[in-house]
Nucleic acid binder design. Structure first.
Lengths: 153, 153
DNA sequence: CTGGTTGCAAATCGTTTGCAGCGCT
DNA sequence: AGCGCTGCAAACGATTTGCAACCAG
């Protein structure tokens, strides 16, 4: 149970920082905690708002810089939906997944389909590419929002 | 051959404008022409550069505004890769497709796999969503770039 | 004429960066 | 002491908006 993939994120982040000649600080610790606790797809700006409530002295530049480090360390993953902002989701110990987003209420489901993943590989290989990653976002209207719209009619 | 889906884009755009109480202008005509002729995934800024070469009096705000109208009219489709800019591709009369992007040289292939499309529908339906659209970008290294990298070793 | 359209410049949004001071190690 | 870290504010790139002059219907 002490295998490296199950170490806690804080330690992993500290290790990453140390390996790169960087340091763990109270701000970074706090930002990481808030980020992990929230869980969802947080924009840097939103993360900043959350962090500020716990410690108003933290600057937004620090949040932006830290969230980038989290992405580099592999603890966070940057995701971009059809808006103009970069969001981050916790990645440590989590399986790869894609997203199903409700265009009305913005609720987001995580999805995964092995058959699709296989077909993606196959498709890329046929065109001479070696896949390094992919993103797939499905947009639709969730059942709750459809119900709401029917009530209006 | 005069069916509405095969009308030429200029007419379609004029119709769209008229239906919305808007007007066709020389600037809009020029921007549409340049956009269609280029064909690729053009950012508004790049489109502005092209247009400016033909008519330096056109302002960039006009280009940004027009490209948005094109997207609303259905003649263009906004695509966002992993950069920070919105690109537009001609959509009129074109089949839906996804993208396979080389992370080294940024070359982009258009791809389509019916099996994947079907699975996407199925996946969404299972979760109670009605799909309105999707985006799938595959990232990889193309054969040309792989060859280049091997030469360096 | 009227109301949409234009170019310009200023404003905005999300994000990055320069810098002087601070705090680990 | 040295080097990374911080908050601040200014800078940034992409995009949007306010406005007065302009022009299409």
């Amino acid at each position: 149970m002490t295998s490296s993939t199950q170490e806690n994120p804080l330690e992993l982040f500290s290790e990453f920082l140390a390996e790169h000649g960087l340091r763990m600080t109270p701000q970074r610790r706090l930002i990481l905690e808030v980020f992990l606790e929230h869980g969802g797809h947080l924009a840097a700006e939103e993360l900043y708002d959350c962090v500020r409530q716990l410690d108003p002295s933290v600057g937004q530049a620090t949040v932006y810089r830290t969230v980038k480090l989290l992405a580099e360390s592999g603890l966070a993953k940057a995701v971009r939906f059809d808006e103009g902002v970069t969001r981050y989701e916790p990645k440590h110990g989590r399986e790869h997944h894609d997203h199903l987003i409700c265009v009305r209420c913005r609720r987001t489901e995580e999805i995964l389909d092995e058959r699709i993943e296989k077909l993606q590989e196959e498709l890329a290989r046929k065109l001479g590419f070696v896949l390094t990653g992919h993103k797939m976002d499905l947009y639709g209207i969730c059942s709750k929002c459809r119900r709401k719209e029917q009530e209006k009619d």
